[in-house]
Design a protein around this nucleic acid. Structure first.
Length: 202
DNA sequence: AGTGCGATTGACT
DNA sequence: GTCAATCGCACTA
């Protein structure tokens, strides 16, 4: 492993404990998926917070078989199957024993783009990782990665990267049937890889 | 053991 | 714009 990777991988202590702060913090950081064929990576450009006490959050009902990774303490992957079709990736937040997390909704592809194009069976760069179900296909993320520590060397990790502070937009979250009006979605204004309707991306 | 339901997407009218 | 696909899981009993 190159030493540079160890240096850049975010440590748990660098992550904000608070779910909403973490959702903002993750905008602009890199998500790196290590595969036998090489690294697939992208910059996080859209997130949603599912804080403690949020009735729309999967942890709201308490720890279960499915959502246990949300209770591992900040910086772990929580991966679940949505609609029986797509895997969605969350970064757990708060302290161990407290259930909450941040949904990763979109990436700007950086490394391994040709592999992502194969995984998605799609050439169009803009469509590769624009959306929470799409990015997991592009990066080959599924339930095998549930519970992985994103702050350690491994198959999936968070990496700090120097980046100009982007202008961050805030909106309600997408696709919910409850708690629909809370301003808990964060995105890079004007970034073409952000998902969602235009009305929420101003 | 049976039931109902999604933190989505792509295909189609 | 509408809508089906598809299945693990939580819940009821």
């Amino acid at each position: 492993m190159p030493a540079i990777d160890r240096r850049l991988t975010l440590t748990q202590s660098e992550l904000p404990v608070d779910t909403v702060l973490l959702a903002r913090f993750l905008i602009g950081t890199l998500l790196v998926r290590e595969t036998p064929e090489g690294a697939l990576s992208g910059r996080i450009v859209e997130t949603e917070a599912y804080p403690v006490g949020d009735a729309a959050g999967h942890a709201y009902i308490g720890a279960t078989k499915r959502n246990g990774a949300l209770f591992l303490g900040r910086g772990h992957a929580y991966v679940y199957l949505a609609y029986g079709v797509y895997y969605l990736l969350n970064v757990s937040s708060e302290h161990a024993g407290v259930g909450a997390g941040v949904l990763i909704r979109a990436l700007e592809p950086l490394e391994g783009i040709s592999a992502m194009q194969r995984n998605r069976r799609l050439q169009d760069l803009r469509g590769l990782t624009r959306g929470p179900g799409r990015l997991t296909v592009a990066l080959d993320i599924d339930r095998r990665l549930d519970g992985v520590d994103l702050c350690q060397k491994g198959p999936l990790r968070l990496v700090r990267d120097a980046h100009a502070a982007p202008e961050i937009g805030v909106s309600q979250r997408i696709g919910l049937s409850r708690e629909t009006d809370k301003p808990l979605r964060f995105y890079v204004r004007g970034n073409p890889f952000v998902s969602g309707p235009k009305s929420l991306n101003r």
